[in-house]
């Protein structure tokens, strides 16, 4: 619209307008493609969110794409929350201690393997690296046996321990790579000033790595929070289920019978991650793809 008004006012403009219209016309299939892409990506998510406000009657009698009657119908969320809350608590209690351990142990090991000098350190790094390749199924059975024999099955310890161990290989490897990018002179200078190796790790290395540590923590958080296999194997009691296992079980209970609470439960699980992603998306994308290239 604006281009035509400009065109009438100026002399040489029509030719240019003509060309740019043609350029825009040529790009129309592309715009359609991008729109289609957006619909494919966003619609399922919007649909599930809309569904979480619907009543059972709307689910069964209205077409599936209909909007909910009222966006203030949050009773589904109330129903879902009453059972999801416990699962969320379990997830938090299992994931965050493991995350803290992974970060502290992994960063210290990465520092030792990259900054410290000793024989066989590249071999140790290779041993850690091999852990990235091992399928989870290879370690499940012996671990289950041990946890069972130690009577840990009625606690969250199996999850914390297993999460810590499975998170280590990637963390150690990425931290070693990050420490490689810090000039050695930094650590040499601090030892000249009389700091012990451990002191220069705590006072120089760890603080310098703050951004990297945060990125890895974020990446590991998503891996651990979204885990199903380990949680499924090691939680044998209902009141120990993590949010992922609980959600599966939840649909088993309500499933085909009761749509609203199921949709609301799925939404609760998604919204948490969405909240984190909105603020950190660049860092998440960078961190996850860095982990992939090196893994």
């Amino acid at each position: 619209m604006t281009t035509t008004t400009v065109a009438t006012r100026r002399g040489p403009a029509p030719a240019r307008t003509h060309r740019s219209t043609r350029r825009h016309l040529r790009r129309i299939p592309l715009y359609i493609l991008v729109t289609l892409l957006l619909v494919v990506m966003v619609y399922p998510l919007v649909w599930i969110l809309l569904g979480s406000f619907k009543t059972q009657d709307e689910f069964l009698n209205n077409p599936t794409w209909a909007l909910p009657h009222s966006f203030f119908n949050v009773s589904n969320y109330g129903d879902a929350w009453s059972s999801i809350a416990l699962y969320l608590r379990n997830s938090v209690l299992a994931v965050f201690p493991a995350l803290a351990l992974v970060i502290v142990l992994g960063t210290a090991a990465g520092y030792a393997l990259e900054v410290m000098v000793f024989r066989g350190r590249s071999r140790v790094l290779m041993v850690f690296l091999a852990g990235i390749m091992i399928p989870g199924q290879m370690i499940l059975l012996p671990l289950f046996t041990v946890y069972f024999k130690l009577h840990l099955n009625s606690t969250l310890w199996p999850l914390i321990i297993t999460y810590t161990a499975t998170g280590l290989p990637l963390t150690v490897f990425m931290m070693a790579t990050y420490f490689r990018s810090i000039p050695r002179e930094v650590f040499e200078a601090s030892t000249l000033d009389g700091a012990s190796a451990i002191r220069s790790f705590w006072s120089i290395g760890f603080p310098m790595m703050r951004s990297a540590v945060f990125t890895i923590a974020l990446v590991q958080f998503f891996f651990l929070w979204n885990d199903l296999l380990i949680a499924l194997t090691f939680t044998t009691q209902d009141d120990l289920r993590t949010v992922q296992v609980g959600l599966l079980n939840f649909t088993g209970q309500f499933g085909t019978v009761d749509y609203g609470p199921t949709f609301a439960a799925i939404c609760i699980n998604m919204l948490l991650v969405l909240g984190l992603y909105i603020f950190m998306n660049q860092r998440v994308m960078r961190g996850l793809s860095a982990g992939a290239v090196k893994g």
């Binding site: 090991a109 410290m116 000793f118 852990g131 499975t166 190796a197 790790f201």
Partner: peptide
């Protein structure tokens, strides 16, 4: 930087957890 005790303190715990919970199983 080649202090054996420091290396043990820094690398030991991670290597121990990794060996016990992933390599041994």
């Amino acid at each position: 930087l080649g202090d054996k005790r420091a290396i043990l303190v820094l690398l030991g715990p991670a290597l121990l957890v990794y060996s016990l919970v992933m390599l041994a199983p």
